[in-house]
Write a protein that binds this DNA or RNA. Structure first.
Lengths: 217, 217
DNA sequence: TACCAAAGTAACCAATCGGTGCAAAAAGGG
DNA sequence: CCCTTTTTGCACCGATTGGTTACTTTGGTA
């Protein structure tokens, strides 16, 4: 054993950086809320993980609930921002739809916290999102995405008309979201490792096929 | 203020009925776990709701976790039992599939606790279900259901071959499950009341259409 | 360099949580 | 009618929780 007091650097010059501290708290909170849910998350655990003092959480974010709200809003901003970078208008409608399905799948894989946060928010009956005007604003653009693809497909004569873009949007999310959020109970009930490489490859193909079958003539 | 010690009947004759007490606790626990999640649920609240003493919960179910496990297992037994009553073999494959999609939808409506309990279990990485052999057993029959319909449809020349029954099973659940579990955030993001009568009717039609498009030639 | 708002810390608190010890009350067999 | 077993009630506990009080340290700047 050494005489050093902790496993951090012995006499860290302690840099003051409010933005960095806020960022570390948000990152830690996202992890903790995703892993344990809104009720299960521990403020002390967030402070520890963020390498920050618990008092700073209340200094910057007021309460556990407000912290969750901020984490959740940021999560929505992030996914909508990523979607904007897809440039689906340059692709033909079928390819645009396939890319959107793939994007949704990959986003959930790379950001597993997103699904868990949304689940927590729905258990809370969306009480944090209700008051968030910014999230509503960024969501509008997102709904328009599928609508545009659908209209283009119809005018090109490859998609059938009369499809509700909201229903399609929901279904695109559903077939991937459900697979991930229920991966643990699913792997038991179907007696198959749903998260193996081969199972994942199989599922994404099935999902693309499903969505294209909905829209094509 | 009256002199009565509590708000229960002053000298209730106290009937001994272990099974009834257990049942009331399980009902109350199901509601409480569904509403607040595994971590958010309060044992005192369950006791109050069940009109039973908290001590009885630990007498009959040992711990909060074990109580949750029992509630969850019962929920799975119930849905699988209901599915058995569908008699899908007497219908032609297309109708059988439609009935199964409708059943899944209606079951989620009539048993909203089921979805919430499954969500909680997945947040807990299915640690309660892992050790439950009975749930695995009743699940096998369930997977076989869709497989049988699919095979019949192929031999009758109305379904295409090569469809993985597990993928189809997952998709049937997904398109309804996702709609309900995300009803609160969904209603905000799509700026539409997803739970209105008309919205529900629209969704179930869309779901039946989706599933039939997957299997039909 | 003296000053002071901003950033960070440690110790603490009241409330609440899951879980228990213990014994009274009620049923049922002899 | 007694006595064992099951069912019930109440008070209580140690641990943990979200949140706070009071304080020190830092770094830009007048």
């Amino acid at each position: 054993m050494s005489a050093q007091p902790t496993d951090t650097q012995p006499s860290r010059p302690r840099i003051r950086d409010a933005e960095a501290t806020k960022g570390r708290i948000l990152d830690a909170a996202k992890k903790e809320f995703a892993r344990n849910g809104l009720e299960g998350a521990r403020v002390d655990a967030i402070a520890l993980e963020a390498n920050a003092n618990k008092r700073m959480i209340y200094h910057y974010f007021e309460s556990k609930e407000k912290l969750f709200q901020t984490v959740l809003e940021n999560a929505y901003f992030d996914i909508r921002e990523s979607e904007k970078k897809l440039e689906l208008d340059s692709l033909d409608p079928r390819e645009a739809l396939e890319r959107l399905v793939r994007f949704t799948w990959n986003y959930y894989i790379q950001n597993p916290e997103f699904i868990s946060l949304v689940n927590s928010e729905n258990l809370a009956q969306a009480r944090h999102l209700k008051t968030s005007e910014p999230v509503k604003i960024v969501s509008r653009r997102f709904v328009g995405l599928v609508d545009t693809i659908l209209k283009r497909g119809v005018s090109e004569g490859i998609f059938r008309s009369g499809i509700d873009p909201v229903q399609l949007n929901i279904t695109i999310a559903a077939v991937s979201y459900y697979y991930f959020t229920n991966q643990y109970t699913g792997s038991i009930i179907f007696e198959r490792d749903l998260m193996s490489e081969s199972a994942q490859a199989e599922r994404i193909r099935f999902n693309i096929d499903t969505i294209l079958r909905i829209v094509c003539l």
